[in-house]
Simulated scan of single mutants.
Amino acid sequence: MGNKDSSLRRKSTKIEFDKEIDNNPIGLEEEKELKLEYLIPDSHEAIDRAHIFHFFQRFLFQSNFSSPIDERLTQEKCKVLDIGCGPGTWLLDLASKYENSLFYGIDNNSIYPSEIKPGNLNFIKADMFDRFPFPDNEFDFVHQGLTSFINPDQLNFIISEMIRVTKPGGYIELLELRNEFKGVGPIVKKINEAHISYCLKRRIDMERVPNIGNMIKSNQNTPIVYKDEKLYVSGPNGGKIGMVFQDIYIGFHSSDAVTDNLCPIIGISKEDYKIMIIKDLIEELKHTSPEHLLIRFWAKKN
């Protein structure tokens, strides 16, 4: 796996902290159309969900990461990069704990805090689907918060870039949210099928999840990949953690952007869709046990 095989642009860029990097978004209108826009937080509610999801996954794993780098972060002056950092919750959490290390986040949507943040944290506006605006072998730890809804070519490129900017002896880590399609009721099944249909139009086959482990292994610098996974049930039958995820799930699916995209596929009005999500779905989850899997993949660079 190498950058030369990717169709994505690799334009060199100059770092300017807390300001936009002029990478020029992927130029073709077709590529813009293919982006899953409703997954990008663009409201206070969406940003709040991103914060909650961070604490959800931290509780589930009882840690912010699975790579064995805690001691180095504590004792050394490490450099850490978060790809697609969103509102920066993961970085803010780590930067406050590991004061000796330096943290950087990149995202194309500048919803991260620009003023109220620790002095060891910098945010950069840049597109993760372009060549990362950093030299080779720059970071001790490179993290990707969530890989769901990224097509295989894009994910292959991102992984390649993560490895490129990681120092020898450093770590990369990716988080994947996977729907097991087990224990679901008719409403969740209908929602899942609508997502699958919507994503297929954008070259993402949710029923054929990319094997992230094999993608990482295919790079000669990261031949050994480790996996840490947690299974949980959404809704009341999943206990407290299930109820937290239910709130995230309901909030996401009741948002205007998701409603606009899924209603035509399901074939119902927005009014009926809202009732289905905030009333019928909540009732269904009382009697079902939909299973989900959250997986961390991590590897050490040779």
Rank of each mutant, 00 (worst) to 15 (best):
P118F: 05
N120T: 12
Q75M: 12
P168K: 14
R72H: 05
K117I: 15
Y112M: 05
L60I: 15
C78L: 05
F132W: 03
Q144L: 15
D127M: 03
L91R: 12
T74H: 13
P152D: 11
K79G: 03
E138W: 08
D136M: 11
I124K: 06
F123A: 03
L60H: 10
R131C: 03
I172T: 10
A95Y: 07
T74Q: 14
G170H: 05
A95Q: 07
I69P: 02
T74F: 15
L81P: 06
D136Y: 11
N122A: 15
L81R: 10
P87G: 00
P135E: 15
T74V: 12
S110R: 02
I159C: 00
S148F: 03
F65A: 09
E161I: 08
I111H: 00
N120L: 14
E161P: 03
N122F: 15
Y104L: 14
G84Y: 01
M162F: 05
L121G: 06
F61A: 04
D82A: 14
F55K: 06
K97R: 11
N120P: 05
V80R: 12
P152F: 11
P152Y: 08
K117N: 14
N151E: 10
N108H: 07
S148V: 06
D127I: 02
L94T: 09
E161Q: 10
I116M: 15
L73W: 07
I83R: 06
F123E: 01
N151M: 10
